[in-house]
Write a protein that binds this DNA or RNA. Structure first.
Lengths: 255, 255
DNA sequence: GAAGCCGATTTATCATGAGAAATACAAGGG
DNA sequence: CCCTTGTATTTCTCATGATAAATCGGCTTC
């Protein structure tokens, strides 16, 4: 139980020492099937095991920390722990990839139009009453039409939270992440870039009806209906957004 | 031009110093619009600018390095440079997120079925002759039925490369990444987990016809046909794969 | 004159030790 | 009983020096 990572990465390779130490620790976590929250050996132990200096070990831990694989705490009972890679963190890391690549709002909606109806259909008849209630609670945030740009923005953010929660309820983690990632990007764009500033009563009404219909279809288990409603909803949302051209993902560099 | 990052992150905050230094460097890159390959200040300069010790600065650089945002080289003209976040690296970082979450082959195919036809349709009539030729060249790798499990595996990998290249040709970087990510995961599963070991002449023939039809539809610009063919192809591939249940993404911890 | 070698220089990398900050837990005072 | 205070533990930060890696430029050689 008091086992510690193997000391072999001392062997000369082209990779730097911190990289090799990080590799060794990752392998060690995998082999021992450690779970998020489990404690890793402390700095002192690692120094002893690997026979390397404190700085090298610390740099290795920073590498792992940046990937969200470990978290460190000071104090008694502190140390390094296997980290929980949250969706937020994974999204932030992924956003780096898009920093130097142009992604327009329309690009995001091309993917949303393909994925969101798929999710809705697969969730029809599978949600608990509590989950449906939570979704309806979120909808309360836009039960009334917005009377200002600021209110409109808040409603839009709430609407995106609706989609993000829906993606959490599915049992397909991959699909859930992709949808959640896009919802987060759009949320950030809405908040920081002040998107969506033109309240429109007619579109608000149609959007709200969509979600009411969607909830109903989800409740009754009508997959085809859920798919169709979500598709209409996405297409409407896209037509609202595509005024904004080539709004890119700049400024989304990870934490 | 010889400007260097601001020295303000010395201010006391809750975030650790390396984190604040990393933040400052990222902001500096963004503000100055630096491109991949551009040189960042050397260690010595950063030490001076931030008024922090070498170790702290190095830990900050390791944080950025782990995210693929900087690369370092030794020697004259060496130093730290703005890094290129490749699809491989972004995929590896994202794979960490799925390490503790079960993702089955069927989950991957649920997303592929939604996305790949969308990509094919949007690419119809938009590919150059050179791109079409490259795709046909990849298809040569499975022009003949496989006669062994090993050959079958190689053909499957080639087929995945076909999809990955197709995703590169689109002008939607988001859609391209998602598809490329899944192709990479499936490739790794095929190579390391020895998936797809049962050659089947009938299915091989149908799969090949799909891709021939797809190339034709892409060439003539028949978006609806491209969409339909790709959908059939994905559904067939899924039926081949779903023997493997709940094959998870373990062992895909980032570099 | 061109190609290949080789050392000088620049840069990151590794090591060590001392001390500061942060935190949990327990003991003492109101 | 609650609040404060002390103390042990652990990471975090700093300072400095020595080492290794990689490249540039001049030199030799053909």
């Amino acid at each position: 139980m008091a086992e510690t990572p193997p000391a072999d990465p001392k062997s000369r390779g082209r990779r730097s020492r911190p990289l090799r130490v990080a590799d060794a620790i990752k392998d060690w976590v995998v082999e021992h099937g450690l779970q998020p929250g489990d404690r890793l050996p402390g700095e002192a132990e690692l120094i002893e095991q690997f026979g390397m200096s404190k700085g090298t070990i610390r740099e290795a831990m920073r590498l792992l920390q940046a990937q969200g694989l470990v978290e460190t705490k000071t104090g008694p009972g502190g140390g390094s722990f296997v980290g929980e890679v949250t969706r937020e963190r994974a999204s932030a890391l992924l956003a780096n990839y898009f920093y130097f690549r142009d992604v327009s709002i329309n690009d995001i909606y091309q993917v949303r139009i393909a994925l969101e109806p798929e999710l809705a259909a697969s969730l029809a008849g599978k949600l608990t009453d509590a989950q449906l209630a939570e979704l309806e609670a979120i909808m309360e945030h836009y039960a009334e039409p917005a009377r200002s740009a600021e209110e409109e923005r808040q409603q839009h953010v709430a609407s995106l939270r609706f989609h993000a929660r829906l993606s959490d309820f599915g049992n397909n983690a991959l699909l859930g992440f992709f949808i959640g990632f896009m919802a987060q990007i759009l949320t950030d764009l809405t908040v920081y870039k002040q998107l969506y500033t033109a309240p429109n009563h007619d579109l608000w009404q149609r959007g709200r009806l969509h979600q009411i219909d969607l909830i109903a279809a989800l409740r009754t288990g009508d997959a085809a209906k859920a798919h169709a409603v979500m598709r209409s909803h996405m297409e409407m949302a896209q037509s609202l957004m595509d005024i904004q051209e080539a709004e890119v993902m700049k400024r989304f560099i990870a934490e």
